[in-house]
Simulated scan of single mutants.
Amino acid sequence: MERDDPVFMAFAARQAATDLTDAPIDQASPSLGHVLAYAKRSGNVADLRMERCLLETPHWRRLYLDQLRGTAVAFSDHARAASEQVVLSRDIGSHRLELIDDVDGAILLITLSDPQSGVYCIEARAPTGTGVRLDLGQPVGTALQVLLSDDFPETKALKALLVQPDTILFLILKAGPK
């Protein structure tokens, strides 16, 4: 069945509309609804069972990445003119990402072309499925910045993924303050 098949799309929409983010995964493997809800989650806490599923099942990984592409403010499938070199800057949609060396670690600087009110986060995914999602906070002017220190596993993992040219990046905007 093709992904653009109307029956598949109706099924996916029904599953995605079902709020499964807090529902336990009782079956042997997650359902389509679980995978899509995990992509749209508002928190950054990784569900180890879902992460294992994304690593081991290319079909679920592809659907997860498609869901992220549809909900993210911007995404980048690979660095322009990617080679085997380390990537220190790249575009994410119309936004610019840069890694700046610092004594305490690297500084991740994202310059937004059209900042919106709300909390941003970034998700980086290797083609193999490994990934990390990190809150960036609200922009100050047009900038989002965070220190990627080796002292924290999340920022260390993000830094390792960001320098790889084939890493897929998603810039996600969460709901603004209420």
Rank of each mutant, 00 (worst) to 15 (best):
D4I: 05
D5R: 10
V7L: 13
V7R: 10
M9Y: 02
A10P: 02
A12H: 06
A12L: 08
A17T: 06
L20V: 01
D22T: 13
P24Y: 10
D26W: 04
D26R: 12
D26G: 15
D26K: 13
A28F: 02
S29A: 14
L32K: 12
G33I: 12
H34S: 06
V35T: 14
L36W: 06
A37W: 10
N44A: 09
A46V: 13
L48C: 05
E56G: 01
H59S: 06
L65W: 13
R69K: 05
R69M: 05
F75Y: 15
S76D: 13
D77I: 01
R80T: 03
A81C: 08
A81W: 03
V87D: 04
S89Y: 03
R90K: 06
I92D: 10
G93I: 11
S94H: 14
L97R: 01
G105Y: 09
A106D: 12
A106K: 07
I107W: 14
I107Q: 15
L108P: 00
I110H: 03
V119S: 03
I122Y: 09
A124H: 03
A124T: 02
R125V: 01
T128S: 15
G131C: 07
R133V: 03
R133M: 09
L134V: 15
D135Y: 11
G137K: 01
G141W: 02
T142Y: 11
T142I: 10
T142P: 04
A143V: 14
D150W: 04
K156P: 00
K156E: 11
A157Y: 01
V163R: 10
Q164H: 14
P165Q: 03
P165V: 02
I168F: 10
L169K: 14
I172H: 02
P177M: 02
K178M: 14
